[in-house]
Nucleic acid binder design. Sequence first.
RNA 1: GCUCCCGUAGUGUAGUGGCCAAUCAUGCUGGCCUUUCGAGCCGGUGACUCGGGUUCAAAUCCCGACGGGAGCACCA
Length: 470
Amino acid sequence: MRFAPGPSGPLHIGHTRAAILNDEYVKRYKGRFILRLEDTNPEKLEPEAYTMIPEDLEWLGIEVHESFVQSDRMELYYDAVRELINVGGAYVCTSDTEVWRSLKESGHPVEDRGLPPDVHMDRWDKMLDGTYNEGEAFLVIKTDLNHPNPAVRDFVGMRLRDEPHPRTGNRYRAYPLYNLSVAFDDHLMGCTHILRGKDHLNNTLKQEYIYDYLGWKRPHFLHYGLVSIPDTLLKKSLIAQERREGRIEGWDDIRLGTLRALKARGFDPLSLRRYWLDVGIKPVDINFSWETLSAINKVVIDDRTNRYFFVGSPRLLSVAVDRPLEASIPLHPEHPERGARKYKLDPINGKIMVLVAEKDLKEQKKGVVFRLKDLCNIILETDGGSEASYAGQDLSSVKGERGRIIQWCLPGSPRCTILYPEDNMGPNEGVAEGFVVEEGRKGSLVQFERVGFCKVWLKGEELYANYGHK
RNA sequence: GCUCCCGUAGUGUAGUGGCCAAUCAUGCUGGCCUUUCGAGCCGGUGACUCGGGUUCAAAUCCCGACGGGAGCACCA
């Protein structure tokens, strides 16, 4: 099996289906996973991608058994092209592209097509030695000009390009196009099964001509349905533009659909694997669902994720109280052994001060008992007001009311900014428990109760949280 | 325009002629429980695109219509 991305950026969520499904077959049938970087288009390459892609695969938990870079294999392609010309499977066209294209569209050959192989071999040599300039000649693979499917009629296999290649510079100028290099490599690398998206259905038809010309055994082709991914910056050109304009800092900006962004948001690669395994390899086109992925991820990460309070748009609330209050809140209720956040609040002038979310406070009515979670019950003096009084510890008295248990923080708690992949997904500015700073230092994943799972980090002394999901 | 692929609830998925008044997950929703409006448990919601045909019997096979997607590059 092979996974063959173009090194024009790091892997994004759209790549994960191919990568994971291929890996799953490899693991199930004890095959080999070949990574092949397809960089025969010097104009669209991102040098960083050559190292980012293997890193991304490793993060996904994929073992790469062998890896190749197409620009290392140019001589191999040249050899195969000669063979193709010899058996009459390819010709060098020196006409204008437009002419060639419109002729084949109507099912007619350009005159070059009927010339004998030695003429084309000679022209091929001229493509290599620089006699032809960029655009003056290109190699075409013969198929069937009367093929009812216009997408399958003669296709370009090699083109001239003088743009320097990030790896090979100006060493080569004849570059293979997708269908040619793929067919050669899939055979040369001994791929027995090609698992790829349905968008390659017509490419498969083209590539089969090459297999047949050279007498190669065709591999087994499998095509799964296309995935449409909503609401994520995937388009490379768009990303490039955003980066240029400084709105995106790196490849792990959480608004991106890159694996790095997913990692930065606290998604576990296991969740992606489960997701694609659930979807399977049907040829049906599907819509990618963040909801489902998040639901899967929640069960994967919840157990190991500590919980803290986050208070968005904090407002100071004073609680009249006649005794000191203590709170001991476990980091995870199902794992008391991990420890707890302990607080002791001594009243000053008969009151203690806490920060609560503006949104939570507004919803509270005068005289109705509600609770500061794990601390005490309170009653507001006025609707949504900032004065309250202590109302005991009896949990049962807050039952049945909606929104009756709210999170709180001590005054002076560190400010925390939550970053979202999209705007208006929740509270941005607020405060978090002081303990979160230490989590931020470690870059931990935490759950802010009633907000969501976030990966927290420090920028200098400032606390930031990358929002993952509910 | 031509060609190909696909069509089960909002989103995915199981289903390959009878066990399907259609599975599971997710979403939404009601309840129980619970110091998260979380998790868990219980319940509800909601689908075989339509029309013909074959058959004793069709979500499953055939034909047509309709709908969605992809390809027809000197991108991959």
